[in-house]
Design a protein around this nucleic acid. Structure first.
Lengths: 147, 147
DNA sequence: TCATAGATGATACACTGTCTCATAATTGAC
DNA sequence: GTCAATTATGAGACAGTGTATCATCTATGA
């Protein structure tokens, strides 16, 4: 079974558990989110969904993204920007981000499993971890030399 | 010298370096940002600045916050929410956050210096690190039992 | 004192994520 | 298969955020 099919199954399992069905809208959001390369903003996904399929509303996309998030298929990468970003998890090497606060460029670097230090702390509080992100901010090489 | 005074000096040093002066507006934003307890959203700071001082515009506050950020006096904590959050650094124990994606509650936990693993990676790319945040997301205890 | 450069306030702006509600689709009971 | 009840959806309204603009004000140094 392909990784994508596995993800689909995971999604359906989640939907069943919460007592809702895999409708056309959810299917579309799932398809496009899994198809995306790298990060995407919700509004980008709205465009994608609307270009390839019959009309899907913004509301449905936003709702669907939350479901995918809770199902653990995508993660929210929060860069302190105006809008949210997501990325799917399957097929990606775990990585983190460093962002330049001047130009916004993003540098990716591999996940080194440093989060293991923290998981006991959170589990102790019965916090169910869906994901984590190590987020650095600073000034990139170019912006330093530019000024 | 108090910690606060040290921060002020750090700020002035930064301003000098970038060739600007400590004006009334910047002073106000500095004061209120340092006075804040825990996280604050920019708009909250706008209110603060406008209630305690003579009129300071939103623009000035937003501009000032960026300067404080670059000067390394505050950090941006990005929770993937609609708006940004900041917190000042002085006088705070380094800590990170876990956020519940359902109710938004925030759990703080101490910084365990796990970032040390990554700094060489970024320094190698000449990325000047201003700060970092370890960000977990998931479902909190209450939201798990609530459903 | 004056000219210049920088800082500010007011406001407009685009955009985001959420909410509402009427309509449509789906499901299960019969 | 039909119908009623429940759930999902689309369209649009909405408030709020962070940025940009630009005319006015302020500070600085010659």
């Amino acid at each position: 079974m392909s990784k994508l099919a596995q993800e689909k199954e995971k999604f359906v399992r989640y939907l069943n558990k919460t007592g809702v069905t895999l409708t056309h809208g959810r299917q579309t959001v799932f398809d496009e989110a899994m198809k995306a390369h790298g990060h995407f903003a919700p509004e980008e996904l709205v465009k994608q969904c609307q270009s390839h399929h019959r009309r899907v509303s913004r509301a449905t996309v936003y709702r669907g993204l939350n479901e995918l998030l809770e199902a653990g298929l995508i993660r929210k990468t929060a860069f302190g920007e105006k809008h949210q970003h997501f990325e799917h998890i399957y097929d990606e090497k775990p990585h983190h981000h460093a962002r330049c606060i001047r130009c916004g460029i993003m540098i990716e670097f591999p996940d080194l499993k440093e989060d293991k230090v923290y998981t006991p702390l959170l589990e102790q509080q019965k916090f169910k971890i869906l994901g984590h992100e190590m987020h650095f901010y600073g000034i990139c090489k170019n912006c330093q030399s530019g000024k």
